[in-house]
Amino acid sequence: MSTAQWLGLLTGIGFGFLLQKGRVLRFDKQLGAMLLKDMTIIKFMLSAILVGMIGVIALSSAGIIALAHKPMNVGAILLGGALFGGGWAIMGFCPGTSVGALGEGRWHAIFAIAGMIAGAALYAELYPFLKATVLAWADYGKIGLPDVLGISPWAIVIAFWAGSIPLFVWFEKKGL
């Protein structure tokens, strides 16, 4: 195995371990968030984002790592985001958690994984058509919020923290 493969494997083991310990792999947790009954995955994701953004912004500001924004392609993000949301609600797993759910014995995740592989194959077949249509509508490129707003990334980091902490307090108060 190459260095990249080893690195991916070890990072994945850590990621899978933490996803499982946070109890976010389960169908019931994912659905619980969408039904606004159980905010476990929202707490988990927001915590990861809040901590991660400090390191990512610090390292990129120092020129140590490069940011890799995904393009703000309007048709792709809007249509793709909506389709993903709809499919996610029925499936009850996202791509990363499906394999983790399989790891903790929820073997029915195999049907979701098979469906997602089929969906990826379908996308590959329709790619030339989509490239000429949806993907060609409007593309703002690889943009970050600090560039759009013309402010320091740290101001946004602070705003994210300031907005999330009261939300967490509210979740705990409501027992969500």
Binding site: G80, G87, C94, P95, G96, A112, A118, G119, Y123
Partner: peptide, 20 residues
């Protein structure tokens, strides 16, 4: 799960990403 998976992954590839 299979049908949801097809729709979700088609959407994720179109949007170029998933919740991760």
């Amino acid at each position: 799960a299979f049908l949801g998976g097809i729709v979700a992954m088609f959407g994720a590839r179109l949007a170029d990403g998933c919740p991760s």
